[in-house]
Design a binder for these strands. Structure first.
Lengths: 210, 210
DNA sequence: CTACGATTCAATCGTTTGATGGATAAATAA
DNA sequence: TTATTTATCCATCAAACGATTGAATCGTAG
């Protein structure tokens, strides 16, 4: 058994996959309401009806996009977990920040779409939001803040959310922040990592240092 | 000399002011594209053409809203500055977080609209974005990270942005995060303050403590 | 009371948007 | 070959949207 989304991802040349890729980018850039199906179709170079043929309505496509980016992000977190496993907390944070920042810089639509879901209202909500709490619990465990994935304390959830958000913010807000600090992309990326480490590492390592 | 916006704010009962208030809320909730002029007009209880009569087009109204909330926020920062002036950095942060969080909790549309400007694209951009860099410099000075408002270092700008964003995130994302941690509004507010202090205070006080 | 500017609304216009039906061609099966 | 399924585009629709026009209403100064 395989969902249409999985089928599309297996063959990146397929029309379904091409549409999904463009939809990720455009939805990520302009949000749900700011995007029109015509924008996506034009970017792919196809007719609107072809888009409808493959993905149904606009909302269906959007939900597929959200599921898709969450799947990608989850996979990335597993990769990170593999690398940092067993290291002391300070190093785990250091490496996590580097890897995650690098990844998101190459796929800013991931951060964009996640933040859109947090802060925007879609006027006709779907409910595929059971994924994020899963994430949060995973990261909490990975950071050594929780032992089991179930029953993570609210205080811990909040800390993890603060960490995730602070990363997404800098990625997603690049177009706004980078002109402010007047640096090029490469330097901005370095600044993001530096700033995140400055903010996050002391908070999580101070207690165990004592 | 007084702008239309200033005039509207002087008489809160005026139609101009009533429209602006509702527009703040609706734009803050659904973003620019997610909001229709009809939604605003209906909420105020007037005809669309009345809205156009007072504020011109949708975009004009939106820009007035953004200017308005930035003015409010700036005033609030001045209030905070008055209170914390002269105190040691740790306390300054502590009090700033409390005051700012309380304020934004009562005016979540402020955080919403600011984040919308960071992360969203409006498809037809305006350019009233010279205000935020001003803010950032102000806060940098207030936190003792910069001496003069001009020529703030990029590293400093980034730190201030991280602080501002982490607050806005929790306010703006309440509808998403609060169900996750399963607490009521009051408890959530306390959790936000606690988490922000946990993350931010060690970072900025560690160096001077040594 | 009248005249006039300011304000509000009902009606409507032109465009955009999401979506669909039908024609057409290419690929696949029988 | 023929029949059938798959994939694509063209033309078009109904609803929603931003915006405008012209008439009605209100307060006020002369």
């Amino acid at each position: 058994m395989s969902t249409p989304l999985e089928k599309a991802r297996r063959d990146p040349e397929s029309m379904k996959a091409r549409i999904l890729d463009v939809a990720r980018r455009i939805f990520g850039e302009y949000g749900f309401h700011g995007t029109t199906t015509r924008m996506i179709a034009q970017e792919v170079g196809i007719d609107i009806s072809t888009l409808h043929y493959h993905w149904g309505g606009k909302k269906d496509l959007y939900e597929s996009v959200v599921i898709d980016i969450n799947k990608d992000l989850r996979q990335k977190l597993i990769d990170v977990e593999q690398v940092i496993h067993g290291l002391p907390l300070g190093e785990r944070l250091d490496i996590s920040i580097d890897m995650t920042t690098d990844y998101l810089f190459e796929h800013p639509e991931v951060s964009n779409l996640i933040l859109f879901r947090y802060f925007g209202k879609t006027r006709s909500e779907g409910n595929l939001d059971a994924i994020i709490p899963e994430f949060t619990a995973d990261i909490a465990r990975s950071m050594g803040l929780a032992l089991d994935k179930k029953n993570v304390r609210p205080e811990t959830m909040m800390k993890v959310l603060a960490v995730m958000n602070s990363i997404h913010n800098f990625i997603s807000g690049e177009n706004f922040f980078r002109p402010m600090v007047k640096v090029d992309r490469k330097r901005y990326s370095a600044l993001v990592k530096e700033t995140l480490k400055f903010i996050l590492i002391p908070a999580f390592t101070q207690h165990e240092a004592i």
